[in-house]
């Protein structure tokens, strides 16, 4: 096995920074999704009933 580091620490640091940014912008992001017809559902799923094919397919996203 090689003894070289795999860069995991740097990648993890970048992912932590991304998570912190996500935590900071999450409230605004949820508002933006809600404004586009998306609702927050179970286990943090965003879903869009208007996007169902029976309700006009993906045209809701064209708004």
């Amino acid at each position: 096995m090689s003894t070289r580091p795999s860069g995991g620490r740097l990648a993890t640091l970048l992912a932590i920074i991304a998570s912190v940014i996500m935590l900071v912008i999450a409230p605004q992001a949820k508002l933006a999704l809600a404004a586009n017809g998306y609702s927050q559902g179970y286990w943090s799923v965003y879903y869009c009933y208007d996007c169902l094919p029976s309700r006009g397919g993906w045209r809701a996203l064209q708004k």
Binding site: S6, A11, T12, I16, M22, Y46
Partner: peptide, 23 residues
Amino acid sequence: RLSLLLSSPFIPALLIYLLLSRF
């Protein structure tokens, strides 16, 4: 912008993958 917002689950997913595979 919408695509970026809907892709947000990949951030914790990436962190989990790195933690599990590295630590």
